[in-house]
Design a protein around this nucleic acid. Structure first.
Length: 256
DNA sequence: ATGACTGTTGGTAACAGA
């Protein structure tokens, strides 16, 4: 059957609800992975999303982070976090998984890393390695899609200017190697088509007119296992325009 | 124009994001 899957770092679900709800009505995704919901436990807008036709599963912690999965095709076997998930020092709300109509879906928000010499960078690498380990048994159980803000640009073509990122996080060899290790576990990188220009960027800094100059990055990724047939995928950069947007655009993936 | 950051909080400045 056909299924439409989306992933979007909304940079505060409460602030973005006026953008998310009409977008859901226009785009009609069956499953939506959200990151940076920034919702406190108990403050998730379950009722508003139910009224829009979606069941919710959320992993919330308050001021930072927060991930969720929305579904209108059922949502069962919800797991928050994963086995041996590292923390800083305690595990944060960065991963949630659920089964939606036979598909195992993960929504992840990888630690930023800040700078390569920061303890947050080591945390990021250990988190990615542990995610890879946690995905191995999931892959054995059936088709899996891992969606989210990976906070790593897979190649130099995935940043607007590689020279501008010299010495910065998101582009280092160890980060890219961590992505390669996840792919090697049994995934394909579903590269979405950009709506405009050659670069499939998903994030543009709010500052200095970065968006209108198309100075972006591809750091939101969709990893699909064998058994998941992707018909098409695109970045909805229209959702990055207008009043009070997130700094990330959603990725929409049509599966069959 | 899609426009020059935006989100959070025992807040009103500080920090995080990437």
């Amino acid at each position: 059957m056909d299924m439409r899957l989306a992933t979007w770092n909304v940079n505060s679900l409460r602030s973005r609800l006026p953008r998310l709800l009409p977008w859901l009505a226009e785009t009609h995704p069956d499953i939506v992975c959200l990151q940076e919901t920034k919702t406190a436990a108990g403050a998730f807008p379950t009722d508003e999303l139910r009224a829009a036709g979606y069941e919710s599963a959320a992993h919330s912690e308050g001021r930072w982070n927060g991930v969720a999965i929305l579904s209108r095709v059922g949502i069962t076997d919800v797991t928050t976090g994963f086995d041996k998930e590292p923390g800083f020092p305690d595990p944060e709300a960065r991963a949630i998984s659920a089964t939606c109509d036979g598909l195992r879906v993960w929504s992840v928000y990888v630690p930023n890393g800040r700078t390569p010499d920061s303890p947050h960078y080591a945390y990021k690498l250990s988190w990615l390695a542990a995610l890879r380990d946690a995905l191995t048994p999931a892959l054995a159980a059936g088709p899996v899609v891992v969606c989210g803000d990976f906070n790593v640009a897979p190649t130099d073509a995935d940043v607007w200017d590689p020279a501008a990122f010299a010495g910065a996080t998101h582009v280092t060899v160890p980060e890219r190697e961590a992505l390669a290790q996840i792919l090697a576990a049994g995934f394909t990188d579903v590269v979405p088509r950009p709506m405009k220009g050659p670069h499939p960027f998903t994030y543009w800094d709010y500052r200095a007119g970065m968006f209108h100059q198309n100075m972006g990055m591809r750091i939101d990724l969709v990893y699909a296992s064998a058994g998941v047939t992707v018909e098409s995928a695109y970045i909805d950069r229209e959702a990055r325009k207008g009043k009070a947007p997130s700094d990330h655009a959603p990725i929409v993936v049509d599966l069959s």
